[in-house]
Simulated assay, not measured.
Amino acid sequence: MVKTEILLFIVFAFSEASACFLLITPSRWGAKPANCSAPLQDVLPEYVVISHTAGTTCTTQAECSRETRNAQDYHQRIKRWCDIAYNFLIGENGYVYEGRGWRSEGAHTYGYNDVSLGIAFIGTFTDRIPNPVAWKALKCLLDFGVKIGYLSQDYLIMAHSDVSDIVSPGNPVREEIAKWPNYKHN
């Protein structure tokens, strides 16, 4: 009985989320195999770190898939990391591209990788914020993560530049997330 209730809850949560955002799995964006899969700590992630990929923006699934593959290639080949750094990436088409996913440790923010989700907007956002559909996808993804129990309901959101000496994601994005009630600035 309990398994049936859990299954129904998950099906309901996924159907509700699909009306709000579309998740593009690694196989659908053409990911290379990862060379690792370290799990997050046993506690729910308490932080969400927002960054940008510093590449080309995208507005179609084909473009965003290509840019996600480019980010993974850069992280694996040039940085010598075992996989794409981020847990999720968001394109200006409003789609969410799964990187390492909900339960795997990222490589996005030193000191926070094992206690946070790293989410990157696809593109360079130093002079502007992503479009409204990308922001909606971010909000829906986070709400969904809380609802299915993969993100603490008391999570704090911050810009990568709040905790690292880096420009990502740029002041316009940092100023936008600073408006969120759960924004954390160090």
Rank of each mutant, 00 (worst) to 15 (best):
D73A: 12
T124L: 13
L138R: 05
I78Q: 12
I122Q: 03
E98V: 02
L141R: 03
D73P: 00
Y110K: 14
Y74W: 15
F88N: 06
S104Y: 09
K139W: 02
I122A: 06
Q72E: 15
Y110I: 11
V133C: 07
F144Q: 00
E92C: 10
D83Q: 02
N93F: 03
S116G: 01
G111C: 14
T109F: 12
H75Y: 13
A137T: 08
K136V: 03
F144A: 04
I122S: 08
A107F: 10
E105T: 14
I129L: 09
Y74V: 08
E105K: 14
V133I: 14
V115R: 04
G111T: 14
G91L: 02
W81T: 04
K79F: 08
I119G: 01
N131T: 11
A107W: 05
T124N: 12
A137E: 09
F125N: 11
R100D: 07
I90D: 00
Y112E: 12
N93W: 01
R128G: 01
D143T: 07
Y95A: 06
F88I: 06
L138K: 04
E92F: 05
T126K: 04
G101K: 03
G99V: 11
P130G: 06
H108R: 01
K79E: 15
G91H: 01
G106F: 03
I122Y: 07
G106K: 01
R128H: 11
A85D: 14
F121E: 13
Y95I: 02
C82Q: 08
K79L: 15
P132H: 08
Q76W: 00
G118Y: 00
I119S: 00
G123C: 07
T124C: 12
P130I: 07
H75M: 14
G94Q: 00
K79R: 15
G99H: 05
G106P: 00
Y110W: 13
A120E: 12
D114P: 00
I129F: 08
G123N: 02
T109K: 12
C140G: 04
I84Q: 02
Y74C: 11
Q72P: 12
I119P: 04
C82M: 04
N113K: 06
I119N: 04
Y112H: 14
G111A: 12
H75D: 15
L117K: 05
F125M: 10
Q72W: 13
